[in-house]
Amino acid sequence: MALKGKLEAELELKASADKFYSIFRSQAHQVPNATPDIIQHVAVHEGDWETHGSVKVWKYTVEGKAEVFKEVVEFDDANRAATLVGVDGDVMKIYKTYKGTFQVTPKGDGSLAKLTMEYETLTADAPPPTKYFIMMINMTKDIDAHVVKA
C-alpha cells in the first residue's frame, strides 16, 4: 500500500514577496546562479519561462548525488505561489505523485515563505521525501540571499 503525505515549513525571508515570487514566476533560469551547490541547470522543455503549464527540466545535487527532475509548473499569482508538479525524473522512481509549492506573503520589510511538499509513494516501504524537502528549504534560503544581494 502506498503512503500519502505532506511536509510543510515556514521561513522568514529578507526579500520582498514579489521579488522572491518573480524568480519562480519568470526567472527560473536564475535559480542555478542563486543556488549552484544544489541546482546546476534548468531548461525549458515545453512552453517558456513564464507560462502556467510549461515544462522544465532541472539538474540538481541532493546528498551528493546528481539527479534530474522534470516538472510542470503551476502559478497562482493572487497568492504568489509556484507549484512544481513532478512528471518524470529520479523522484518519480519512488513517488507516484510529487508536488512542491513555494508560496510567499508579505511580512514587514520581507516576506514569509510557506513550503509544502505533497507526495504519494509507489510502495509502502518507500521513504518520505525528507531529503528533497531539506533541499527545497536550502534552495529557498539561497534564493532569498541572492535576491537581497541583487
Rank of each mutant, 00 (worst) to 15 (best):
D88F: 04
Y132K: 09
G64C: 04
K6H: 12
E74T: 13
T130S: 07
I23C: 08
K56L: 15
Y98I: 00
A150C: 14
K70C: 06
A82F: 03
Q30V: 15
K59C: 04
D144I: 00
A113H: 10
Y21K: 01
E118W: 00
V62W: 09
L13Q: 02
I39P: 02
D18Y: 11
S111I: 09
Q30K: 12
K107R: 13
E118N: 08
D144Q: 04
V55W: 03
P127W: 06
V44A: 05
T51H: 06
K70V: 04
K93E: 11
M139I: 08
A78H: 11
E120K: 01
A2I: 01
T121V: 01
G110E: 03
G47K: 06
M1Y: 00
D88Q: 02
P32V: 08
V87F: 00
N138Y: 09
S111Y: 10
A126Q: 05
G64N: 06
E50C: 15
Q30L: 14
D109Q: 08
V91L: 08
D144M: 04
T140K: 12
M136H: 15
F133K: 00
A66H: 07
E71N: 01
I137Q: 15
I94H: 01
V73W: 01
Y98Q: 04
W58F: 10
I137H: 09
I134A: 14
A66P: 05
T140R: 07
G110S: 08
H45G: 13
G53V: 03
V104H: 07
K107H: 11
Q103G: 10
N138P: 08
E10W: 08
D142G: 11
V147Y: 11
A2F: 02
F69A: 03
K65V: 05
V55G: 06
Q40W: 06
E67Y: 03
D109T: 10
A43V: 15
V55N: 00
K14R: 12
M92S: 03
L115W: 01
K14N: 12
Y95T: 01
T101D: 02
R80P: 02
T61R: 14
T97K: 03
G89V: 06
M139C: 15
V68G: 07
A66T: 13
E10G: 14
I38P: 12
K19S: 13
N79I: 00
T35D: 06
H146D: 15
T83I: 06
P106D: 07
E10D: 07
V147N: 12
M1R: 07
